[in-house]
Amino acid sequence: MKKHVVFDFGGVVFQWRPKELLKRTLPHRAVDEAAAQQLVADFFQNYEGDWGRFDRGTIEVPELAPLIAERLGFELGEVQAVIDAVPGELEAQKETVELLHRLHENGHRLYFLSNMPEPYAVHLESTHEFFSRFTDGVFSSRVKLIKPEPEIFELATKRFGIEPSQTVFIDDVAKNVEIARAHGWHAIQFITAAQVEADLEAIG
């Protein structure tokens, strides 16, 4: 198995179900499945637009919330409720955490590469002991770059001091997996921790 394993966070190490988040937080707007799905698209804009700037670290909550409220025609309190609820949604996924521990114990060096706004990055770092398993990591908001931009993979390669051919990247988003491969990394699209572990063995 390759020496270096780089993990995405949202949807891989941590649960990320934006539709369920919005159904809980704004039930009066997510009145059925179709409305909830549309609300995800409208609120997060595929993690581009204003939320993309939040991921990139070029906008903070006091500016973000009014922008989303104005764009969607929502009350400011509604938008703030969603922003405040995100940390509660980012629960560690037990099976992935167990895989992290096994890989670490077997001598693999672990890293993370995550699109993550600064407030949520601080929350995750301060609430999960398994961060000690990671040799290093990159949060998008701290380097002002986001996946799938090639530059963030270039930065991570240099910062981690890793050889791309000895590196495997794990992400739930197909585009990010494609860019990692284009950068010379091996890459696996995450579906389940068990699937990833089998794919890691297959890569060798």
Rank of each mutant, 00 (worst) to 15 (best):
D84V: 13
A69H: 05
T96V: 02
E91P: 05
A69S: 03
Q80V: 11
L64H: 06
A69F: 02
D84M: 13
L67Q: 08
L100W: 00
V82F: 09
L76N: 06
A85H: 04
V86G: 00
E70N: 06
L99Y: 00
G88R: 00
T96S: 04
I83R: 02
Q93M: 15
I83F: 02
L100V: 09
E75P: 01
E78Q: 10
V82C: 12
L76Q: 04
E98Q: 15
L99E: 03
G88F: 01
A92R: 14
T96G: 03
A85V: 13
L90Y: 11
A85S: 15
T96Q: 02
A69T: 07
V79N: 08
G88T: 00
E95Y: 12
G77D: 09
P66R: 04
E95Q: 14
L90M: 14
G77N: 10
A69R: 03
L64D: 06
L99A: 04
T96K: 01
P66H: 07
V82L: 13
L90H: 08
F74I: 12
A65N: 14
L67H: 03
L100K: 02
L72Q: 13
E78W: 05
A65M: 08
V79M: 09
Q80E: 15
E95R: 09
E89Y: 01
A85Y: 06
A69K: 04
L99M: 05
G73L: 10
L76A: 06
E70T: 06
A92Y: 13
E98W: 09
P66M: 04
A85N: 11
E75W: 08
E89L: 01
P87G: 13
V86F: 01
A65Y: 05
G77F: 10
G73K: 06
